[in-house]
Each structure stands twice: as structure tokens, then as C-alpha cells.
């Protein structure tokens, strides 16, 4: 009986302790998400009759969304963007950087600082900076370099738009990957490597059989964070291409913005946002379940 009372008191105390985090979460995350679900079932708009008198349209926005080729294109572009920049680009280069920094090489602090530097630039600033590098045909800085060496210039954002967006986001995110993976590498006990060396393991075997398995929780955590955060990247892509040319770089966040704030259809844009939320949640749950892997 006394134990039950103690348990209940402890639970109440925990609730009080959680309250400062729960209240902002409810107000700033849960409520807007639920409101977005409500909006997605209306024809709410920023202008026109629907702005003055929005009406309930049920699942009409979702039906329209699923029959909209541009929406499916945005999901495909988002998939390429996430896999290309977060999973392949940032992770691989971040891992290589973390491994390199672990070794006692000359200039390691400078190398680390240089990789971290892009994180200091806000998304939009980074986007505009890369516009000067890539956009404008022969006016682009990279094109001028090509021309200097006698090569023909390239209109980078017109010829390889998605690749360029992936590259810029990779450039910007290597630092974050490197920090997380460096922390993961530091947690691998040095004794394990020593034992492996004594057993005659070569570097490849040590990497495949020690580093990777012991890093698995860190890698999955990184994948979760970077996948969800990359799905929501907006400022960089919007500043760089606005989703163009055509809709070749229109990731889901830009698609939602374009529908909501360029075409002014808030209800329809909210339907897109709800789908993006569901996709992010599904990926999050999948990763969290994967975190429980046996190592």
C-alpha cells in the first residue's frame, strides 16, 4: 500500500518535471500538427472567396494530391535529395572525416574547422552564396574558372540542378555528420582494436567487424536525425532554385510552400504537409525500431 502511494507520488513528480517540456510541445508542435490536419480538409486560401468563407471539403484535397503528378515528382525529388545528400554524401564524407580526424595527422584541427565552417552559414545565406558560384551561365564563378582553363562554361543549375542541390546540401551537412560520428568513434574502446591487432586482423577487417558494428547505434541515430531534418530542408533549396528549373528540384517542403504561399491554397498545401509529416513519422519509427538492433 505504502509502495503504491510512493509510486503514484513519483509519477506525479515526473509529470511535473515533464511539464515544462510538454506544454511547449503541445502548443508549438502537437496543436499546429492537428490544426494542419483540420486545414487539409478545408479549401482555406490566402485570397479569393475561400479566404473569407472557407468550407469543409473532406478528403478532396488528398484525392487531388494523389492525382497530382507534381506531388509525386516532389516525393521522388525528396527521396533522391535525402538519399544523395544525407545518407550517401554527408554520411560517407562525414565518416571519412571522422576517421581521418581520429588519426594524429598534421593540420587535423584546421581540417576539422574547415569542414565545420559551412554549418556557420544559415541555409538561405549558403543558398545565395552558391547561386553566385553556379548560376548565370558564363557569369558563375565556377564557369569562370572553367573558361580560365579554356573549357566551355556550364550552366550548372540548369544542366545538373538536382545534383547541384544535393552537392550543396552535402557540403553544408558534413560537419554535423562528422561531429556525431566522431563521438561514436570515441566510444569504441581502444582495447578492442588492440586485441584485434594481436589476433592479426587487418585494417579492413577491423573496420568491418569492429568499427561498423560498434558504431551501429550512432549511425542509426545519425540516419534518423539527418533523414528527418533533410526532408524538412527548405531555405537552401528555395534560395538556390525555388524548386526549378521546371520542378526538377521541387522537394516536398518547396512543393508545400509553392501550393500554400505561391498559389495561396492553404488547405491543399496543408494536405501535402500532413503527408510529409506521416512520411517523416514512419521513417522515424522505422529508425527507432532499428536502433534496438543487437550489437
Amino acid at each position: 500500500m505504502a509502495f503504491d502511494a510512493f509510486q503514484k507520488r513519483k509519477e506525479r513528480q515526473l509529470l511535473w518535471l515533464l511539464l515544462p517540456a510538454l506544454v511547449p510541445l503541445l502548443i508549438l508542435t502537437i496543436y499546429p500538427a492537428l490544426y494542419a490536419v483540420y486545414l487539409s480538409m478545408t479549401n482555406e486560401a490566402l485570397t479569393g472567396v475561400a479566404a473569407a468563407k472557407p468550407r469543409f471539403v473532406g478528403a478532396a484535397n488528398y484525392l487531388r494530391l494523389f492525382s497530382d503528378g507534381r506531388f509525386w515528382n516532389s516525393l521522388f525529388v525528396t527521396f533522391v535529395f535525402v538519399v544523395g545528400s544525407a545518407i550517401i554524401g554527408q554520411f560517407v564524407l562525414g565518416f571519412i572525416s571522422a576517421m581521418a580526424l581520429r588519426r594524429k595527422i598534421v593540420g587535423a584541427p584546421v581540417f576539422g574547422a574547415a569542414i565545420l565552417l559551412p554549418n556557420a552559414a544559415p541555409e538561405v545565406v549558403a543558398g545565395f552564396m552558391w547561386i553566385s558560384m553556379l548560376a548565370g551561365g558564363d557569369h558563375a564563378t565556377l564557369s569562370k574558372i572553367l573558361v580560365f582553363f579554356g573549357l566551355p562554361y556550364v550552366d550548372w543549375l540548369q544542366t545538373f540542378p538536382l545534383f547541384m542541390v544535393v552537392m550543396v546540401n552535402t557540403w553544408r551537412g558534413i560537419g554535423t555528420a562528422m561531429i556525431l560520428l566522431t563521438a561514436g568513434l570515441a566510444a569504441v574502446p581502444a582495447e578492442v582494436y588492440e586485441a584485434a591487432r594481436m589476433d592479426g586482423a587487418n585494417p579492413r577487417q577491423m573496420f568491418m567487424r569492429i568499427t561498423l558494428p560498434l558504431m551501429a547505434p550512432t549511425i542509426f541515430l545519425y540516419m534518423l536525425i539527418s533523414t528527418v531534418s533533410t526532408i524538412s530542408v527548405f531555405g537552401l533549396v528555395y534560395a538556390l532554385t525555388r524548386g526549378g528549373p521546371g520542378n526538377k528540384t521541387e522537394v516536398i517542403s518547396v512543393y508545400i510552400y509553392n501550393q500554400s504561399f505561391a498559389a495561396f491554397q492553404i488547405g491543399y498545401g496543408a494536405a501535402g504537409a500532413v503527408v510529409a509529416l506521416v512520411v517523416s513519422l514512419a521513417l522515424g519509427i522505422a529508425y527507432v525500431r532499428s536502433l534496438k538492433v543487437e550489437v
Binding site: 547561386i131 548560376a135 538556390l240 526549378g244 528549373p245
Partner: peptide
């Protein structure tokens, strides 16, 4: 056509 597909199509 190409400049019209960029982010600030009027500039070029």
C-alpha cells in the same frame, strides 16, 4: 528558354 526556368527569370 533556359533563363526562364531559373529562380530569377527576368534577370538574364
Amino acid at each position: 528558354v533556359d533563363p526562364l526556368l531559373g529562380p530569377e527569370p527576368w534577370v538574364i
